[in-house]
Design a protein around this nucleic acid. Structure first.
Length: 814
RNA sequence: GGGGGAGUGGCGGAAUGGUAGACGCGCAUGCCUUAGGAGCAUGUGGCUUCGGCCGUGCGGGUUCGAAUCCCGCCUCCCCCA
C-alpha cells in the first residue's frame, strides 16, 4: 500500500540526499555545455528569511534549476550582505557585538535557506563582513585612489540625524533617509567620493544589457544628463566684485523672453544686490526660506513666492534691463542657484509672473499663434518670434543658433550637466569596511600599503549611542604610524558605504577562496558577467547603478574585459501584506510555521502561483490549500501502477499524447520568461488530464509511464523535493535535477478532431467538430449547416465568409 | 508637473485581434465518513420568455470580429521632480 504525500518526511530526507551527493556544487564543464551564471540579489542577514525572501528566492532558484535542465552548466551561488546599520544598532540596544549578531543571524538564515531546498552552491558563499572579503574592498579603494577614481573633498553633504551618518544622494528619497525615513539635513564635512560621474555618459548607453524598461528609465532619469547653456546677466552697474549673475538653462531658445531673474534665497549675491528699501522684506523672506525643507520648497502644489531685490540685471542678448528677485522655488544646490525667468515658456515662471504681475513675452510661437495672450506656459517647440535676428527659425534651430551667438560673444557657454553626483562613500559608522587611509601631519593623506591589508575592524570597540563612530574613540585603532615617515598618524575612522560590498560581490563568487587576488582574472573573463540577475525594484538606482560604475572602473584598470556586470535582469515584484511592505523593517512573516504545516514545495509553488512574478502581490494564506491539494493529486497520479491500464483506446492514447506535448510547450515557453503562475496552471491542467485518462483506462502503460515522467520533470524546478521523490519512486536515475527537459513536437499539438467556433456577424452561434485535416470547403459546409448558423442566416443574404484556420468560421449576413 | 505600470466574476488571476473569465481560491449541491476546517463528484459572471440579451473603469472610433488597436476622460500603484 503506497503512502500518502507527507512533505515533512520527504523534504528533509531528499535534501540530505542532495547534500550527500553534493549535486549543486559547480564543476568546470567536461561536456562543453554553455555557461550560465545566475544570481539572486543576496540578502541582508536581518535575522529571519521572511515570506518576501521566499517569494524572491523561489523564483530565482526555479530559474537556475530550469536552466540546468535546459542543458547549461549553471553557477548559482548565494551569500550575505553582512555589513550595515541594524547590526550596529543591535549592539547599541542589546549589548551584543555586531559580529556576533550578524553571524548568529547568518546561521539561522542558512538553516532557513536549507529549508527552502534551493540549489545553491554553498561552497562559494561569501559574507561581506569577513575580513577576507572586505580586504578586497580596501584593495579596490586603493586602486581607485591610484587611478583618480577616489578622492576626498569638503562640501555640503546629506546627513541623517537618526542614523548619525552621511548618505549618498541615491540614499535620499523625498528628502528623507532611504532606510530610516528621518528628514535629511545638510552639513559641511570632508568625505571620500568615487568618481562615478566620470562614467555618466557611458552609463547612459544601455545597449549591452537586457533589463526591464522601467529600470533603464530609472537609471536614465537618475543620471539625468541635460544639455544647456550657462549665460551671464550683467550687474556691473552696482560696482560689486561679481559683475554678473550666472544662470543655467536648457531652453536658450527662449532667452529673448526673459522678463526677470530669480535667485535662490541662499545665493551669495542676494545680500549684496538687495537695495536699501527692499532690505527688510528680503531679509525676512530669506530667513523664512531657511526654516523650510527642500521638499516643502519644491513641492509642485505649493504656491511660488518671491520678493524683488530692487536690483536689475542686463540680458546680454538684447540689452534689456530686467528685475532681479529672490524666490524659494529656486534651489541653491541645483545648477547655478539662479534661473532666468521666462514666463511664457516655463510653467513655474509663468505661475510666478502671474502672481507678481510680471510681463509675459512669447518668443517661441505655437502653431497658428496670432499674438494673443497665453493661458498657460507654452513648452513645446515652435517658431522663434520677438527674437531679433533669429525670428522665423524653428526653435530647435534657434536653440543652436542662439547658443552659437552667445559663445561667439563670450556671454556664456554650452554645458552638459548631470543630475547624478559623485558617489559619497564615507559613513560615520562602525560596522563597515574601514577606509584604508592614514593622515600624517607631515605627509598628509597616506594610503595604507597593500601588504598591510586588511585594516581590520577592532573587535573591542565601545558601542554607545554617542553619535560618533566607535572607531574615533578607539585609541588602538585611531593611532597608527605613517606608512611613509613612520611618524605619528591618525587612521581614517569612517567606514565605507555598504553598497561598496555589493558592487562587485558577484565577481568574488568566482574565486571565493583566492587570497592572492580579488578574483582570478582568466576565470572571471570566461565566467562573468552574470548572465541572469534577479532582484527587487528598490535597487533600480543605487546598487545596480553602483555595480555598473564599478565594473567599468574594473575594466579600465584591466581586471575584466567586459562592460556590464549583469546582462539580463529580471525585477520581481514586491510581496506585501495588507498593512504594507514586507521587509527587514516591518511585518516579518515567518515562513517556518508555514513550511511545517504545508511543506516547502507547497509554499514555493503557492508563492509562484499568486500571480505574475514581476507584479508582486499581497500575501494571504487563503488559497494555499489549492496548491496542497494539487500536489497531493500529483503524488497520487504519479504512483499508480501503469500495468493496471488495459490500453487499446486509440483516441484516448492520442488525446493524452497531445496533452503531454502541449504541456511541455507551454511550460517551457512560460518558464523561459518567468511566467511561473501560468506554468503551474498548465501543470494543474495536465494532472487533471492524466486523471481523466486513468479513469478512461484505455491508454497504454507505456504512454502512461512517459506521461508521468514528463510531469515530474516539469515539476522539478518548481517543487524540487516532491519531484525528486516521485522521480526516484518511478525508477528514475538520480537526480531529477540533472535530467534534460522533455521535448515536444509541433505535429502532436492537436487532436484528430478539432472544434471550430461558428459565428454569425461576429457572435458565437454554434460550434462544430471537424477532422483536424478538414479543408476550408468542408468546414464551410458544416458550419453553414449547423443549427445555430441556420437560425441566424435564414432569410438573410450571406455577404462574406471568414475562416480562421483551426479556430473559427464567421458568416457575415446583411 | 514628468515618466512607467495597471483597472477583467465574491477573490488571486488567464486570454495582447478570433468561444472573455484558463488555472486556483471561495461558495453551492451531492457522495463518503463516528466525525470533518479531510477526500471525491458536479455546478458556479448577470439577466432570460431558454430563442437569446448584457458583460473586461467611463465615452467615442476602426474592424466581419476588440479586454486586446486608435482618440478623449476617470481612478489606483510605482519611480522622478
Amino acid at each position: 500500500m503506497r503512502e500518502s504525500y507527507d512533505p515533512a518526511e520527504i523534504e528533509p530526507r531528499i535534501r540530505r540526499l542532495w547534500q550527500d551527493n553534493d549535486i549543486y556544487r559547480w564543476h568546470a564543464d567536461e561536456n562543453g555545455r554553455p555557461k550560465w551564471f545566475v544570481q539572486s540579489m543576496f540578502p541582508y542577514p536581518s535575522g529571519d528569511l521572511h515570506i518576501g525572501h521566499w517569494f524572491a528566492f523561489s523564483g530565482g532558484d526555479a530559474a537556475a534549476r530550469f536552466k540546468r535542465m535546459e542543458g547549461y552548466n549553471v553557477l548559482h551561488p548565494q551569500g550575505f550582505d553582512a555589513f550595515g546599520l541594524p547590526a550596529e544598532n543591535a549592539a547599541i540596544r542589546g549589548n551584543v557585538h555586531p559580529k556576533l549578531w550578524t553571524y548568529d543571524n547568518i546561521s539561522n538564515m542558512r538553516r532557513q535557506f536549507e529549508l527552502m531546498g534551493n540549489s545553491y552552491d554553498w561552497s562559494r558563499q561569501i559574507i561581506t563582513c569577513d575580513p577576507e572579503y572586505y580586504k578586497w574592498n580596501q584593495y579596490f579603494f586603493l586602486k581607485f585612489l591610484e587611478n583618480g577614481l577616489a578622492y576626498r573633498s569638503d562640501g555640503a553633504v546629506n546627513w541623517c540625524p537618526e542614523d548619525q551618518t552621511t548618505l549618498a544622494n541615491e540614499q535620499v528619497k523625498d528628502g528623507k533617509c532611504e532606510r530610516c525615513e528621518a528628514v535629511v539635513e545638510k552639513r559641511n564635512m570632508p568625505q571620500w567620493y568615487f568618481a562615478i560621474t566620470k562614467y555618466a555618459d557611458e552609463m547612459l548607453d544601455m545597449s549591452g544589457i537586457e533589463w526591464p524598461e522601467k529600470v533603464i528609465v530609472s537609471q536614465e532619469n537618475w543620471i539625468g544628463r541635460s544639455e544647456g547653456v550657462n549665460i551671464r546677466f550683467d550687474i556691473s552697474e552696482y560696482g560689486l566684485e561679481t559683475e554678473s549673475i550666472g544662470t543655467f538653462t536648457t531652453r536658450i531658445d527662449t532667452i529673448f523672453g526673459v522678463t526677470f531673474v530669480v535667485l535662490a534665497p541662499e545665493h551669495p549675491l542676494v545680500g549684496q544686490l538687495t537695495q536699501p528699501d527692499q532690505r527688510p522684506i528680503v531679509d525676512e523672506y530669506v530667513a523664512a526660506a531657511a526654516r523650510e525643507t527642500e521638499i516643502e520648497r519644491t513641492s509642485a502644489v505649493r504656491e511660488k513666492t518671491g520678493v524683488p531685490t530692487g536690483a536689475y540685471c542686463i540680458n546680454p542678448i538684447n540689452n534689456e534691463r530686467v528685475p532681479v528677485l529672490v524666490g524659494d522655488y529656486v534651489l541653491a544646490t541645483y545648477g547655478t542657484g539662479a534661473v532666468m525667468g521666462v514666463p511664457a515658456h516655463d510653467a513655474r515662471d509663468f505661475e510666478f509672473a502671474k502672481k507678481y504681475d510680471l510681463p509675459i513675452r512669447v518668443v517661441v510661437a505655437p502653431e497658428g499663434w496670432g499674438g494673443e495672450e497665453l493661458e498657460e506656459a507654452y513648452l513645446a517647440p515652435g517658431v522663434q518670434v520677438n527674437s531679433g535676428e533669429f525670428d522665423g527659425l524653428p526653435s530647435a534651430k534657434g536653440m543652436e543658433a542662439i547658443a552659437d551667438a552667445i559663445e561667439a560673444n563670450g556671454w556664456g557657454e554650452r554645458v552638459v550637466t548631470y543630475h547624478m553626483r559623485d558617489w559619497l562613500i564615507s559613513r560615520q559608522r562602525y560596522w563597515g569596511t574601514p577606509i584604508p587611509v592614514i593622515y600624517c601631519g607631515d605627509c598628509g593623506t597616506v594610503p595604507v600599503p597593500y601588504e598591510d591589508l586588511p585594516v581590520e575592524l577592532p573587535a573591542d570597540a565601545a558601542f554607545k549611542p554617542s553619535g560618533r563612530s566607535p572607531l574615533t574613540e578607539h585609541e588602538g585603532f585611531l593611532n597608527a604610524p605613517c606608512p611613509k615617515c613612520s611618524g605619528p598618524g591618525k587612521r581614517e575612522t569612517d567606514t565605507m558605504d555598504t553598497f561598496m560590498d555589493s558592487s562587485w560581490y558577484h565577481m568574488r563568487y568566482l574565486s571565493p577562496d583566492n587570497d592572492e587576488d580579488p578574483f582570478d582574472p582568466d576565470f572571471a573573463n570566461s565566467w562573468a558577467p552574470v548572465d541572469q540577475y534577479t532582484g527587487g525594484m528598490e535597487h533600480a538606482v543605487m546598487h545596480l547603478l553602483y555595480s555598473r560604475f564599478f565594473n567599468r572602473a574594473l575594466r579600465d584598470m584591466g581586471y575584466v574585459d567586459f562592460d556590464e556586470p549583469y546582462v539580463h535582469l529580471f525585477s520581481h515584484g514586491t510581496l506585501t501584506t495588507e498593512v504594507g511592505k514586507i521587509s527587514k523593517r516591518s511585518n516579518p512573516l515567518a515562513p517556518d510555521p508555514l513550511v511545517q504545516e504545508y511543506g516547502a514545495d507547497t509554499l514555493r509553488c503557492y508563492l509562484m502561483f499568486l500571480g505574475p512574478w514581476d507584479k508582486g502581490g499581497i500575501w494571504t494564506e487563503s488559497g494555499i490549500n489549492g496548491i496542497r491539494r494539487w500536489l497531493h493529486r500529483t503524488w497520487d497520479v504519479c504512483l499508480r501502477n501503469p500495468e493496471e491500464l488495459s490500453g487499446g483506446d486509440d483516441a484516448a492514447e492520442r488525446a493524452l499524447d497531445v496533452a503531454g506535448n502541449t504541456v511541455t510547450k507551454r511550460v517551457i515557453e512560460d518558464m523561459r520568461v518567468y511566467k511561473y503562475n501560468t506554468s503551474i496552471a498548465s501543470l494543474m491542467t495536465y494532472v487533471n488530464q492524466l486523471n481523466e485518462a486513468w479513469d478512461n483506462g484505455g491508454v497504454s502503460p507505456k504512454l502512461w509511464r512517459e506521461s508521468v515522467r514528463r510531469l515530474i520533470l516539469h515539476l522539478a524546478p518548481l517543487a524540487p523535493h516532491i519531484a525528486e521523490e516521485l522521480w526516484l519512486l518511478n525508477g528514475g536515475e538520480f537526480s531529477v535535477h540533472q535530467q534534460p527537459l522533455p521535448e515536444w513536437q509541433e505535429s502532436k499539438l492537436t487532436v484528430d478532431t478539432i472544434k471550430i467556433v461558428v459565428q454569425v456577424n461576429g457572435r458565437v452561434r454554434d460550434t462544430i467538430a471537424v477532422p483536424a485535416d478538414a479543408g476550408e470547403k468542408e468546414i464551410a459546409a458544416t458550419a453553414l449547416a449547423s443549427p445555430g448558423a441556420v437560425r441566424h442566416t435564414q432569410d438573410k443574404q450571406i455577404r462574406r465568409e471568414i475562416y480562421v484556420p483551426g479556430r473559427l468560421f464567421n458568416i457575415v449576413v446583411g
